[in-house]
């Protein structure tokens, strides 16, 4: 009996040590990455680095054109994906919740979320760059990214809309508002923080995407003058700097800017999310 007890006791101990260790290793590995990059990159990030144009393929100078291109890509992709994503979410939550069409839509959304970015890149290249004749451009890149973030926006908007209490809708309808008036004036404003969170997270995805952007927007280092110009995003710039061994110093600095940007984006997203939950409770 004692033998059994002690083996149970030891198994308990060993298991808990393993669980603690897995958290420490997981966090440790992830934080090591961030820490290492900030440690080697932070000192090379300066105002000049952010606002000057690169010289010698990026070996010297700054990353200004890549920042401009990244902002363009964010603007184009979200201008397209946000309205479509929100409208799709309204349709799925407020109008048709069941039926075979909804099942197909959900399957398609999930499939879209699971398709690797390189496939989006191939598709963007074949469809937008060649077939539509948009060539390597911000437009091709932005549209490709719009397809990629669409599932994120649909899902987060759906969640946000679902979390609006039914009594809000009933109250509005009871006062004589039509269904659309209720959605537009009551449901959407209440769901807004959740929807905004989804949009902010999508910005993060756009900023970080590399494979699809390289195949559709190209890697030109000039400041784009229009959406039809080829361009290089920050992530693509980091990839090229590191892989072609152009400048490790600039690569660290670019990676640092990316990490800081993601940090800001995530903080914003959690802030907005918190406001949402406190709003609904009050």
């Amino acid at each position: 009996m004692d033998k059994v007890r002690s083996s149970v006791y030891w198994e308990e101990k060993v298991a808990k040590v393993f669980l603690w260790a897995s958290v420490v290793i997981t966090l440790g590995a992830l934080l090591a990455v961030i820490f290492h990059i900030l440690q080697h990159g932070l000192m090379h990030v300066s105002w000049e680095f952010l606002t000057k144009e690169p010289r010698l393929m990026g070996k010297e100078g700054g990353i200004f054109p890549t920042i401009v291109s990244t902002v363009y890509l964010i603007a184009i992709s979200l201008a397209i994906a946000t309205p479509i994503g929100i409208m799709a979410a309204i349709q799925l939550t407020e109008y048709t919740q069941k039926g075979s069409l909804v099942k197909v839509i959900r399957f398609a959304t999930e499939t879209l979320a699971g398709i690797p970015s390189i496939i989006f890149g191939l598709f963007g290249f074949a469809f937008l760059v060649l077939f539509m004749g948009f060539s390597w451009s911000l437009l091709s890149g932005g549209l490709t990214l719009a397809f990629m973030v669409l599932p994120t926006i649909v899902r987060t908007s759906e969640e946000a809309i679902k979390s609006v209490p039914l009594s809000y809708r009933e109250g509005s309808m009871a006062l004589g508002a039509t269904k659309w008036q209720t959605i537009w004036k009551i449901v959407l404003p209440s769901a807004l923080p959740g929807i905004v969170t989804g949009v902010i997270l999508s910005i993060g995805r756009v900023v970080g995407e590399t494979a699809a952007v390289i195949l559709t927007a190209g890697s030109s280092l000039n400041i784009p003058a229009s959406v039809m110009d080829p361009a290089r995003s920050m992530s693509v710039h980091l990839y090229i700097l590191a892989m072609e061994g152009i400048s490790m110093e600039k690569a660290y600095a670019t990676a640092t800017v990316l990490i800081i940007l993601i940090f800001i984006i995530n903080t914003l997203a959690t802030r907005v999310m918190r406001r949402m939950s406190s709003n609904l409770i009050s």
Binding site: L30, L31, L201, G204, G208, T210, S235, L238, Y239, N266
Partner: peptide, 15 residues
């Protein structure tokens, strides 16, 4: 922390 790390671009991990 884990959510933040999920958002870090893959090129950064590659780098």
């Amino acid at each position: 922390a884990i959510e933040l790390l999920a958002g870090i671009p893959s090129v950064v991990y590659g780098f």
